[in-house]
Design a protein around this nucleic acid. Structure first.
Lengths: 359, 359
DNA sequence: TTGTAAGCGTTATCAT
DNA sequence: ATGATAACGCTTACAA
C-alpha cells in the first residue's frame, strides 16, 4: 500500500536506498533486460510499491535515445474525418507501445509548420500530418526542409491524406485516391443522366484536397465530352455552414435563363449536409427534384435524409498505415508511398434527373 | 539556409562552438530570460539557424522542472462528444503554451488507470479524464490513490464530465449537470402529455453518466407522481447501433396488452439516431406516432430528420475549464469543483402524443 | 556580460 | 549477480 513519502517524486536512487541495492540494479529490474536474482528483484519491486515510484520518461528518453512518442497534427479534432484518421493513428501508435502527441492548426498552414518544429523539439519519432494541406512552391520548399531536418535527427515526416512533397524530401506518404473518388462520383451522376452538376467546394485553390477533388470532377466531365459550366462551381470552406450558404446563393441566382443544375456535388459530406438543409428549406425534394452527393463517407452520411451518396475513404486504415510505415521504415522500401483506394457509396440522395437534359 | 550537419542532432554545445561562446550563453539566448549582448545574441541565433538546431524538450524538462505537457484520456477520439471536449482541452492547453498527450481507453476502466500511470511517467502537468467513468468502491479507491500520487509529484488529476471521487482525493472537477439535463428533458416529454416514456440507456449501472441520466429520468417521473414502467427501461451501449437494436427489440416485444410507449429517451444522441432509424424502418413517423429525445446535442442532432430534441452540454467550455483550473489551481480555491449547466434544446422530434393518455 | 561547474534522473559500460 | 562511474542535453548557481 503506497506509503506516501513527503515532498517530491521519488527517483531510482530513493528506490535503491529503500531496497538496499544500487541504482543500476533498480534500473535493471525495471527494464527487465538483465539478470537479477529473484530475491533482489522482489525487494526492489517492494520498494517501488512502497514509494509509489514511476520512472521518469524524460530522463529515460534522454539517455536511452527514443521518446517512444508519435505526434499527429490535424486541422481540428472535431471533424469526423480527422477524428477517424486520428483514431487510426492513435490505435496503431498504442499498439506499437508509443504515446501520442496531438496538435491542431485550424487550417493555418504556417501554424502547421510551427507545430512540426514543436514536435521536433519533443523528439517525436514520427510526425504525422493528417489531411490535405497547402501546395505553393514556398510552402513546399519549407516543408521539404523540415522533412530533411526531421530525417537528420532520426525522426520522420508522414503525410497522411496528402500527396508527396517532392523528390528530395524524405517522407512517408499514405494517400487515398482523392482525384479518383471525385471522378467516380461525378461519373456516377453523369451516368444517371445529369448534365448540369454544381460543385460546392472550398475556396482554397492551392489546397491539395480541393484541387484533387475538383480535378476529378472536371475530368469526369471531359471523359463524357461535357464542359463544366463555371457558374456552377462555387467556393467556400469544408464545413456544413459553407454548403448551406453556397447552395442558398446558387438557388437565389438561378434566374431561369439557363437550365438550372440537376445535381450538386459537395466537396465534403459536411458541406453536402448543408446543401441538403438549404434544399429542404427551399422546398426542393432530394433526389426527386435535385440530386446531391458528398465526399468522405463520415458516419453521419448514412443518417442524413435522404441517406447520402458519397465517396468512401479508408479513414482508420489511413492513420494506421501512416504510423506502421513510419515506425518500420527500415523494413519497407526507402521511398514510402502508399495509395489506398476510394469508392462510391450509393445511397439515396442521387437519382436520375426529373427531365433528362441529355441531348 | 540550414547547412546540414552530418550525423545526429546538434546540441547547445555544438551551437556554442559554432558561435564561439559557452553553452550557458546559448541557453540564455534561447530562453531569453537573461541579459545577453546584442552582438552575441546575433551570433548565437545565426549558429542556431546554420545548424538547424532545436532544443531538446526532454532535457530541458529534466532540469527545468516542467514538461509543459497536458494529458487527456478519452474513451474514443471519434465520438462527437469526446471530440468536442477534447477540442476544448487542446485549445486551452495550446493557449497556455502546453503540448497535449492523448490516449483512448475504449470504455475499459482498468485501461484508464493504466493510462493515468503512463501519463505520470510522462510527467504530465495535468491528467484530464474526459467523460463519465466507472463508479465502484474499488475503482474509486484506486482512483483516489492515483490522484494522491499525482498530487505528490505536483501534477493534477482532472475529472471532466464526471463527479468527484471523494473527499480525500485531490482533484479538479469540471462537471455538467447530467442529472438535471435528464430531468429537464424527461419533464418536457411528460409536460407534452407523454406517460409511457421508454429509456434506452447503457447497461453499465456503475457508470457515472448512465446512472446520472437514469436518475434524472426517474426523478422527473416522481415529480409528476408517475412511476417508471421497468419494462420500458432497456440497456445497451452509448452508440447508434445500440439504439437501433434496443428499439427493434422494444417494438417486437410490444404485444398490445399494455399501451405502447409514446416516447423514447435515448441516453445519447447517437443512441437516439439509432432509435430514429429503427422507427423509420418500422414505418412509424416521428413525432406524429412516437416522440424521441436524445442527450448531448452533438452537431449531428440538428441534421437528423426530424431534427432531434435533446439536452445541450457545453462541450468545449468543459474542456477549456478543465485545463484552465488545473493549470492555475493556486489562483483558485483548493477544492476545485465547477458545475456547468445543461439545457433542453427543443427541435422537431418530440410532440404531444397522438392519443393523450393522461388520466 | 560571459563562463565554469554541478546536477536533473536514467541507463550503458566496465569492473568486481 | 551487482555496483561504481560516466554519460545524455540542458539550466542554474556561482564566479569572474
Amino acid at each position: 500500500m503506497a506509503r506516501a513519502i513527503a515532498g517530491g517524486r521519488p527517483t531510482v536512487k530513493d528506490v535503491a536506498v529503500a531496497a538496499g541495492v544500487s541504482a543500476t540494479t533498480v534500473s535493471r529490474v525495471l527494464a527487465g533486460n538483465y539478470p537479477v536474482s529473484a530475491s533482489t528483484r522482489k525487494r526492489v519491486l517492494r520498494a517501488v510499491q512502497d514509494l509509489d515510484f514511476v520512472i521518469n520518461a524524460q530522463a529515460r528518453a534522454l539517455v536511452g535515445g527514443s521518446t517512444r512518442t508519435v505526434a499527429f497534427i490535424v486541422r481540428d479534432l472535431v471533424g469526423p474525418l480527422f477524428a477517424y484518421i486520428g483514431q487510426g493513428v492513435e490505435q496503431q501508435a498504442t499498439a506499437e507501445g508509443r504515446v501520442c502527441l496531438v496538435c491542431t492548426h485550424h487550417g493555418d498552414a504556417d501554424r502547421e509548420l510551427e507545430l512540426i518544429e514543436l514536435m521536433r523539439e519533443q523528439q517525436a519519432e514520427a510526425v504525422v500530418l493528417v489531411g490535405g494541406g497547402l501546395r505553393t512552391p514556398e510552402h513546399l520548399e519549407r516543408m521539404a526542409q523540415i522533412a530533411r531536418s526531421l530525417e537528420r535527427v532520426g525522426s520522420r515526416l508522414v503525410l497522411c491524406g496528402r500527396p508527396p512533397i517532392g523528390p528530395d524530401a524524405p517522407s512517408t506518404v499514405v494517400e487515398y485516391d482523392n482525384e479518383g473518388g471525385a471522378f467516380a462520383v461525378t461519373n456516377y451522376l453523369i451516368s444517371l443522366g445529369h448534365r448540369r452538376i454544381a460543385f460546392v467546394g472550398a475556396a482554397e485553390p492551392n489546397h491539395t484536397t480541393t484541387s484533387a477533388r475538383f480535378e476529378g470532377y472536371t475530368r469526369a466531365h471531359r471523359a463524357h465530352g461535357l464542359t463544366v459550366d463555371d457558374s456552377l462551381v462555387v467556393g467556400g470552406t469544408f464545413d456544413r455552414e459553407s454548403g448551406y450558404r453556397q447552395t442558398k446563393a446558387l438557388l437565389a441566382r438561378d434566374t431561369g435563363t439557363e437550365p438550372a443544375m440537376t445535381a450538386i456535388l459537395g466537396i465534403t459530406d459536411m458541406v453536402a449536409s448543408g446543401i441538403l438543409a438549404a434544399l429542404r428549406e427551399a422546398g426542393l425534394r432530394v433526389p426527386e427534384d435535385i440530386s446531391v452527393a458528398g465526399y468522405d463517407d463520415i458516419p453521419l452520411s448514412a443518417d442524413l435524409s435522404p441517406a447520402l451518396t458519397t465517396v468512401h475513404i479508408p479513414h482508420e486504415e489511413l492513420g494506421r498505415a501512416a504510423v506502421r510505415l513510419a515506425l518500420h521504415r527500415d523494413e519497407y522500401a526507402l521511398d514510402q508511398h502508399l495509395l489506398l483506394g476510394t469508392h462510391v457509396v450509393i445511397r439515396d440522395s442521387a437519382a436520375p434527373p426529373r427531365e433528362n437534359n441529355a441531348r
